[in-house]
Nucleic acid binder design. Sequence first.
RNA 1: CGGGGCGUAGCGCAGCCUGGUAGCGCAUCUGCUUUGGGAGCAGAGGGUCGCAGGUUCAAAUCCUGCCGCCCCGACCA
Length: 439
Amino acid sequence: MRLSRYFLPVLRETPKEAEIVSHRLMLRAGMIRQQAAGIYSWLPLGLRVLDRIGDIVREEQNRAGALEILMPTMQPADLWRESGRYDDYGKEMLRIEDRHERKMLFGPTAEEVVTDIFRSFVKSYRDLPLNLYNIQWKFRDEVRPRFGVMRGREFLMKDAYSFDLDFEASRAAYNRMFVAYLRTFDRLGLRAIPMRADSGPIGGDMSHEFIILADTGESAVFCDRAILNLPIPPKDTDFYGDLSPIVSAWTKPYAATEEKHDAAAFAALPEEDRMSARGIEVGHIFHFGTKYSQAMGASVTGPDGKDTVVQMGSYGIGVSRLVGAIIEAAHDDAGIIWPESVAPFRVGLINLKPGDPTTDAAALTLYERLSKAGISVLLDDVEASAGAKFAKMDLIGLPWQLIVGPKGLARHEVEIKHRATGRREVMTPDEAVTRLLAA
RNA sequence: CGGGGCGUAGCGCAGCCUGGUAGCGCAUCUGCUUUGGGAGCAGAGGGUCGCAGGUUCAAAUCCUGCCGCCCCGACCA
């Protein structure tokens, strides 16, 4: 993409409404535009990141055996009356009436809809296990939206729902999502720590929040340093084998949010292993048994010929929240530092002197060579001072900067800068292409 | 939902107390000169001062009501 043909409205000054760093940087980097409290438009650069995160989430869900569907944002109130939540949910649910005066709502979650889909089509235990997910906009009319996309009212969420014949099978489904989440957050460049969460009336250890560490996180967290060094399950993990050893390894070390903190247990750890930090919740997995399947009549015929109400679980990832969370975890004074896996472009190619034929030709050649090799490149071909170009490129945080100017070219040299480390290296254009292809 | 703050050009702000022709910086546009870490000069455009009432000869400024946004707390993917 050429910057001259792109839409990247960067701000030099910080809008005053933005208090936390990710919100400031998203506004300054031209990623989002606020339309109302907790409601945002996503501009080209922001949308690219959102899509890349969604793609990684999708790949790992698929790998774990979940199947993608797409459920509506608008849902009929009748379904929610069946589950009893239409009255329970309160003012966080945005209620709407259509022209025929039918009660509708903007979905804050989709247990009712997915359960309706399930009961309409699945009648036999032979069709289990089943896990259906979608990545769809949700709306929760928060009392106090804040922190930009980290706590919006409208937000993009991946929500998966598992259906199983019995508790043991449901636990296996839970473990698949648990492992998928470890892999997903790792690929996003984040260290997410599963922390035991309130598991409601079912009991047991079947609810976890996935928390990433960031200085500006909303909640205080306490954990055993050992959890930071646990290995991430590999790509070729057998999701239909026994995953419980992995889950056990990850749930054994101490890890708790402030609400669940057990000061005595924490104090029992050796001092050097105790870690207290701030955290952001980016995922939550939950087994809730037959809460919805019972109320809404989702049952299958079991091997014994009897109707069995299915066991369910739900598994959420805050996709739009992750954009902010990743920035919270990866930035410096100059701007964002995108992990390679979600960067909107891999390389920012800076033409220091647009209009100079030699420099233009060199920049364009590099742009085409890299693009043909499958590397996404943002070519800054706009006339501006060198300092302004560097500042803008640092702000939007692309992993690599490739700097081409007349002075360097006279020596047949270009410069590569690694955004994360700040390391710069001078080399020939050919070497630069080789280096970026290998990086 | 309690407490606090803010709405003046795209962004950041001054002006308001003490009413009298709406300003500054950045950004934008034009021209020239510049060009390796947010360039310089000259010129130009851009405003229902959040909205609605009221007081007054006169309201960005004073009064009343409303709306929007932000922050702290309680609550939450």
